[in-house]
Structure formats: structure tokens, C-alpha cells
Amino acid sequence: MRNRKWNWRHLLCLSVFLALAGAAAAHGQSGGFTEFIYPVEKLKPTDSVPTLKVGDVAPDFTLPAVEGGKVSLRQYAGKKNVVISFVPAAWTPVCSAQWPGYNIAKGLFDKHDAILLGITVDNIPTLYAWTKQMCGPSEKLWFPVLSDFYPHGAVASKYGVLRSEGVSERALFIINKKGVITYIDVHDINERPLLDDLAKALERVNRQ
């Protein structure tokens, strides 16, 4: 009788070990963070009504930045061209593989005297954790990441890229030093915009 009890207890211990080992293996395989990326089904490509067009003056905004403090669009007026990258949400597949590319393309932005502002509707702590894993513990993204969390999606809404489910479109805006919009790409939310297209649009920004 005593032996039998030990048998099922052993089996339970072994089970816990196996479950933990499996979880550890999964963690290792996906590289520590990849498993935190939330799987998203294919979504409606775009789901918002445009409010702005090329040639319009870009609406000003002020948003809190992950690095602390606040960033306003007007602070770049006359100084820098501005690229705004709206991405739908932290910890989702395509977004998690968009800004890491921009992070190694600083040269492209510098070449055209441009700054990049990354915006999502997530709150600061979420954006802090998410952007931290993009570039390693000792580094940080070279561009400001801004939170359009409260009032929820107010800037996305002003730019006509707030979707009905409360996240923003995957959209790129280029604003020249005069504060005028020179490029808008409200992209299919399921796909990453090619860097080629942004590069071509930046080639034109100082001529517009």
C-alpha cells in the first residue's frame, strides 16, 4: 500500500517536472520574448475615415514619451522634418517587427534631416517593456516613443487613423519643416510598409 502511494506521488512530481521543462524549452526556443507576442488574426486592412490629406497643415499634439517628459510636434517646426509612425499595438506581430528596422535606419532619417516619432495607443509602462526588448538591455531606441493612451487615441483620431476597435492604423505621415504633410501611407494593418517607400518619400520631403 505504501509503495503504491509513492508511485502516484512520484508520477505527480515527474509530471510537474515535465510541464516545467516543457515551458522552459518553449521559452528558450522562442528567445525569451517572442512567446510574449500576442498572435493576431488577419484584420480588416483599414478601418478608419481619413481626416487629413497631403498639403494639409499637420495638427499639433503633445504626448508623454517613454523616456520621460512630453513631446510636441511644434517643437520640430523649422528645425526637422518629422516622420510619424503609428503602429496598432505593442506586443503584436507586425508592429514588433517594424520599429526594430527603423532603429537601424537612423542614417536614412539623418540624411533627410528627419526625426521619427513612434506612436501607439498603449500606456507608458507597456511601451517601456515592449521597446526595451527590441534593442537589448543596455541600449535604447534612438527615436522618441509616445503614448496616445489617454484620452484614448486622441492623436490617432485627430490624424484620422483610429480604428473602431480602439487601436490605430499602421500609418506613416511625413511632415516637413513648415509643418505641412507631404506623405501619408495608411497601410494594410496586416503588412509592414517597405522601407523603400518611406525612403522615396523622404527623398522628396525637402523639395516640397
Binding site: 515527474l14 515535465l18 510541464a19 526556443q29 520574448f33 517587427a97
Partner: peptide
């Protein structure tokens, strides 16, 4: 547990970034 130990490491269909 046996199922989890083997099944948990199955990757997603999309191409992702792998760390370690």
C-alpha cells in the same frame, strides 16, 4: 504534462525573431 513538455515548443506559422 507529457503533452505540454513536447507541445509547448511548437512554433507559430509566422516567421518571428528568435533569441537565444
Amino acid at each position: 504534462a507529457l503533452f505540454l513538455s513536447g507541445g509547448a515548443s511548437q512554433g507559430a506559422e509566422t516567421i518571428t525573431s528568435i533569441g537565444n
